[in-house]
Design a protein around this nucleic acid. Structure first.
Lengths: 155, 155
DNA sequence: TATTGTTATACTCTATAACTATA
DNA sequence: TATAGTTATAGAGTATAACAATA
């Protein structure tokens, strides 16, 4: 099938929120205390970028610094994240996941994946492959241009 | 490419929030007053299902009734939505978009589509077609099972 | 008795503005 | 002077519980 970026954009705008709604419900389900979607994404980021700074998390999530700071308060209070000063630049703090933080992140990740997989399970494997190919392209196009945590050496 | 629902689910969980972040920023950008993502989606739903009830909107958005009611307060105050009693069943209210509501919905829709299209514009048309095919499948899988507004006659 | 919607209350998410500490 | 982060404040988004009106 041949199509225009505009058509594709229109479809994306309808389908992406539908998927997001399901994921959000799953992330929050049956959990005390609940973890919000942004908190879960923050956990994912810190897990993947151990020792990243608050500014990096805020940039990745598309949040302001005060918002990210407050969200981290919640995660620190819950015992999922630890703050540690950066000796090289004492204005910065480095963020780390606690064991508990790793565990809850893993649990939610698996639960959300299971939910998505359950919806996908009756699809033909070839179609699943096509979807993954599409997702790989979409990722390159919508990924933030730079994730500073990846290139700390230069900073 | 051949793959499992689990692999596909894992990719979805990473890519969908990335796209969502961009869309959200675009919906809220340069607007007074800002329209939140849920408000925009509510406007979309009412536009597509004129005269739908609050319960239907809440179900579509995955919100509780009180939350949907409060959100509608905001849209009504802003002059974008009108509430009208249902003569057949006076517990219900029917929701309608005002001209202003239609205009702002259209404006935001076009702006969000343009943002997405700008990210997609350098992709090969065949790849865009593949993405649309994938989105069509994903829509069938994640769409709410029934949108009551579609079958009011039976109710 | 069940359904539709609102009100009351509380907590999180988010932003802007003002501030502290460090570079 | 600029950057990293927090605090103060305010408004929206969300939920549960309790309520009113209607079926």
């Amino acid at each position: 099938m041949d199509t225009s970026p505009q058509d594709c954009a229109a479809d994306l705008l309808e389908v992406v929120p539908l998927i997001m709604r399901g994921v959000r419900a799953e992330v929050r389900r049956d959990r005390t205390p609940e973890l919000s979607m942004p908190q879960f994404r923050a956990l994912s980021f810190v897990e993947r970028h151990e020792g990243s700074t608050l500014t990096e998390v805020a940039q990745f999530l598309g949040l302001t610094l005060p918002t990210a700071s407050k969200m981290m308060d919640g995660l620190v209070d819950a015992g999922y994240v630890q703050r540690a000063p950066d000796r090289r630049d004492r204005r910065k703090i480095k963020l780390h996941l606690s064991t508990e933080g790793q565990q809850i992140h893993e649990a939610i990740l698996l639960q959300a994946r299971e939910f998505l997989a359950s919806r996908l399970q009756h699809l033909d494997p070839n179609i699943l492959g096509d979807i993954r190919t599409s997702l790989r392209v979409l990722r390159t196009v919508f990924e933030p241009v730079s994730v500073p945590g990846e290139a700390v050496g230069a900073a």
